[in-house]
Design a binder for these strands. Structure first.
Lengths: 216, 216
DNA sequence: GTCTATATGCCGATAGAC
DNA sequence: GTCTATCGGCATATAGAC
């Protein structure tokens, strides 16, 4: 900590802002590289270069590569979970799910690196996130499963296992970020193309919604 | 996966069989490690140890780490694509898709490492598979899209973009292999559990099928 | 085909001046 | 906080004997 300035804690000084900016620059460069080459495939040299700082300086802000990686993961977890947090029982279920799909596809379009890094961590068994998964995430999913269960009991939704519905929502929306290379190879298009984005939103919404709608 | 080595075209001697066995042992150990730790996170030492050969010996069979990685990828591509290849227009569409989902979930259960390594490669932009993706895979997907299009034109399937339906099938089924850590953290169960496996098959089938069924 | 020994390069992290 | 210099370790790959 900076002992020369007692006001550091309250009002951010010019210096502390510069420090914060450097931290975010490093985190951003790390996310870009980790998500493409993996943690082991990325050297601190490259991260430093991407953030325009020296490697030694980087290690001043983050004491080790693992510490940096954990910081990156913590940063993106919120973005990733935000759409699910937004699900609430007082909404109309089909509208809520329609909204969720659009939101999550926006995340896939606007934060593909976060999505991919998260996926990569999961593939490896989530050694650094296992705690969060079994704690916070499980609670969140249990909570939202109860919401879905409620909708089903009110006859507003077809009887499906809530967990599997949540997995389907996750899988179908993330796919466009995580497998964007494949999507592009096959369709020749990207979510960044507005027409393709809207077509994707509508198709995913329709298939999922029709699959869980109640019919008379 | 269980394909025998074709290096010796005529009569396989005892020696050539031993050689083939070593190659597959190395490929198998490499798949297990690469899919968990990534290529960069795995040393040839560990692969050699896993295959019970010396590192120098391993490098006799595969001249470099990259050559080994490519060999592993080529091996699993077929397994991964087999279910899609099985889609044929003369089938009843809903039956065909129901079968596809079960087949692909069996792959997720029985070859999770292949699924994960494939996913990992995709996340990184598929530098070594891009050629295959834009060639063979694109042709296969175009072909199967035409099949789906045919079903739609015959009024046997709801009007959806075939590509998005294929992506949905891929995404929902692979999820249980690629994100098995998360699935297990949330549900406490695995596809290896027969009850959970069947529940998964039924739920995915129902949600997807209901989403694309034609109703009067 | 299989081994021992080793060349060679990179990378994470530390020491210490300023 | 930032720099230069460097240590120590590990990993890929090769050389050469058997």
């Amino acid at each position: 900590m900076n002992s020369t300035d007692k006001a550091t804690v309250k009002a951010p000084t010019r210096r502390s802002r510069a420090v914060a900016a450097k931290r975010t620059a490093i985190l951003s460069a790390a996310l870009a590289l980790f998500s493409q080459y993996g943690v082991h495939g990325t050297s601190l040299d490259k991260v430093a270069e991407g953030a325009d700082v020296s490697k030694t300086n980087l290690l001043y802000y983050f004491p080790s590569k693992e510490a940096l990686y954990i910081a990156v993961l913590k940063n993106i977890l919120d973005v990733w979970l935000a759409p699910l947090r937004a699900l609430r029982e007082d909404q109309q279920p089909l509208e809520a799910i329609r909204d969720y799909i659009r939101l999550k596809l926006e995340v896939s379009r606007d934060h593909p690196q976060a999505s991919r890094l998260f996926c990569m961590e999961m593939l490896q068994g989530a050694p650094l996130l296992k705690g969060e998964l079994e704690g916070d995430l499980k609670r969140l999913v249990d909570d939202k499963s109860a919401v879905i269960e409620g909708w089903i009991n009110q006859g507003k939704l077809a009887a499906v296992e809530p967990h599997h519905l949540i997995f389907m929502l996750w899988a179908t929306t993330q796919h466009y970020a995580d497998f964007s290379t494949q999507v592009e190879a096959v369709t020749g298009q990207t979510l960044n193309d507005d027409v393709f984005f809207n077509q994707t939103v509508e198709n995913v919404q329709r298939m999922v919604i029709e699959g869980i709608r109640i019919r008379e």
